[in-house]
Design a binder for these strands. Structure first.
Lengths: 349, 349
DNA sequence: TTTGTAAGTCTTAACGTTTTCATGAATGAC
DNA sequence: GTCATTCATGAAAACGTTAAGACTTACAAA
């Protein structure tokens, strides 16, 4: 079978301790000659330490667990890539867990990862987690005593480490861009509003509205679910109202809006402006490239991973609250509101 | 710290052996009463076996390693989802490795996965692997004695297990669809032609051409690299030739072709028909939804994972050669060739 | 000569399980 | 009443490492 440290010991005539010492750079008292013999043997026999055995005694696996809803979601695969890239740079590994946004899977995976002895968990909570469920999974997290960082989504009721983008600012930037273009009736297709990220984006939307002295009109808000289909349904509902712009809370639902709008003969942006959120790379490939909010999600992955690894190296951190700023990417799906349009809306108002 | 089996032993007064026996369902001789006591203790103390220790003695980790180029690639994230879903169903886990298509990373990850004691590896070889490199990584694979299955890409020179889609048939279906529509000058933006998958797709293209008695014209072939940018470059080069249809060897490069074509004032499909390959979800969202070849890649993931797990359960399989059939998805980017166009081309010819 | 120190190496326990084999008690057959 | 068998359980080794500490030997200082 595989070469073990005992094989090296026999081969060289030294004890396993000496081998271990040398190989772990702790052989300060070991003369160069002995080291050379050992290194040569390692080479000859192609020895590499069994990491399971190492893990058992060191209680370290250099492994991170990532819990997300679905890796097929471009948002999450970007995140995962950032995480894995940073892992590799540090000689760590990543185990991937998809929950399909089901709370019980969050729970199951947290336990499994603990059993596997991962050294840290990056956690994007399931979308179906209400207050109680969120509390339950975070309590479980705390109980297993493994460092963890919440990514993308926070849960304000509980104090935990997190690395997120500033959803409020993102919502604000998207909306301000539209108000700056003269839009006053701006429809929203949001994400699930029990989620902090959606809530914050809506806060940003309202702030921008206020700044432009535009009253908040709840009839222009449709609570979606971050899917293309949700976007389609949302805009179909919304089409009964009057508006000159739509702010979709992620690019996927923006695609749904985009499709339905075009299918109904609307011109984007001449008739209706559209802004998305996420800046998925597909968004620039659309016939009318999408104006959107760029979330540096790859960077969130890197940052969170760095911190998680740090937590294992150094003493525990007080409280990690890292907020990364999103920014607006203007493309072709937004334009200044047409005068006639504005008048038409004014009259309806 | 964490509850260990010793804690359960102390708590119940039984030995660790008895606990282990009961918990592993091997306590045939252990009376029901004892079992109840032990189960209760496990419940009370919230005991779960340390999988690292289990792994060390059983030499099983119930973990699969996945080596791909980049999880951000929608193709691979679909694959990964299939794999992870099947893993979960079997109580297995997935460790994700991105190589960015660099051969040395293939090599490094293979070793790391072996060190970590994974029970199987799913391997999509790096795109930069020439014959020699491919041989090198497969030799390494063989040497670590861990079951592995090649996915998506094969390497004909070496006999290994694989689960792939039928690229030849895919290339044939795409091309036949175009010849059926009357196209006779069909340009290709291929993938890297040292890869079997690209080679096979081209074979399929030629077969369809032959069937329609159309001579193969190398000037219509551009060797791309499966990226949007590659698609752009390809079509720009190709625009010097005359053709009425383009077959892009994946959807990503089809997007590049699509963009450039539209930017140059061509109408799709009236002026030029376009067919892609992969059926990425985004393809149906384009203003002109893309006709493409659907690769059941999620299913490839499931199938490969099933087999890999089987290999661990049962005796080794002779040779796994599973080919999953792709199929054509007709959307709006292809149409019958216009008569005038055909004449124009004929005259050029 | 004794004592101390350092160099070079090894013995042993530990990590948390599973598994082989042993042991003692109870039961049943003769 | 003896022996064999079954039942119920436990001791100990093993998995492949690391690490605390012990043990030699050599040499220098007192």
């Amino acid at each position: 079978m595989r070469t073990t440290i005992k094989d090296i010991a026999e081969y060289t005539g030294f004890s396993v301790t000496t081998i271990s010492l040398v190989l772990n750079g702790k052989g300060t008292k070991i003369p160069e000659k002995t080291k050379q013999i050992i290194f040569k043997a390692v080479e000859d026999l192609d020895y590499r330490p069994n990491q399971i055995a190492v893990g058992l005694v060191k209680k370290r696996t250099n492994t991170i667990g990532l819990i997300i809803s679905d890796i097929r979601n471009v948002f999450f695969s970007n995140l995962a890539k950032g995480i894995e890239d940073e892992c590799r740079r540090n000689g760590w590994n990543l185990v991937l867990c998809n929950t399909n946004d089901m709370h019980e899977r969050d729970m199951a995976y947290i336990r499994v990862l603990a059993d596997k002895g991962v050294d840290g968990i990056l956690y994007a909570m399931s979308i179906d987690s209400n207050h109680e469920k969120a509390m339950e999974s975070l309590t479980l997290m705390d109980s297993i005593k493994i460092p963890y960082i919440m990514i993308d989504r926070t849960f304000r009721q509980k104090c935990c480490h997190y690395v997120v983008t500033d959803h409020e600012v993102g919502g604000y930037l998207a909306t301000k861009h539209l108000t700056d273009l003269g839009h006053r009736r701006i429809a929203c297709v949001t994400g699930p509003l029990h989620l902090d990220d959606s809530k914050f984006r809506l806060d940003g939307y309202r702030r921008a509205l206020e700044e432009a002295s535009i009253p908040y009109d709840p009839t222009l808000i449709y609570e979606g679910d971050y899917t293309v289909e949700g976007g389609r349904e949302g805009i179909n509902k919304l089409l009964g109202e009057t508006f000159t712009a739509v702010f979709a809370f992620n690019d996927m639902s923006a695609y749904g809006v985009y499709n339905v709008l075009k299918a109904n003969g609307y011109n984007i942006p001449d008739d209706i402006s559209l802004v998305g959120y996420d800046n998925i790379f597909f968004s620039e490939l659309l016939d009318t490239p999408l104006t959107t909010i760029h979330q540096p999600i790859y960077e969130v992955g890197i940052e969170a991973t760095k911190r998680l690894i740090e937590m294992n190296e150094k003493k525990p951190i007080d409280k990690l609250e890292r907020v990364i700023e999103p920014y607006l990417v203007v493309r072709k799906s937004t334009s200044a509101v047409k005068l006639e349009k504005t008048e038409a809306n004014e009259s309806v108002k």
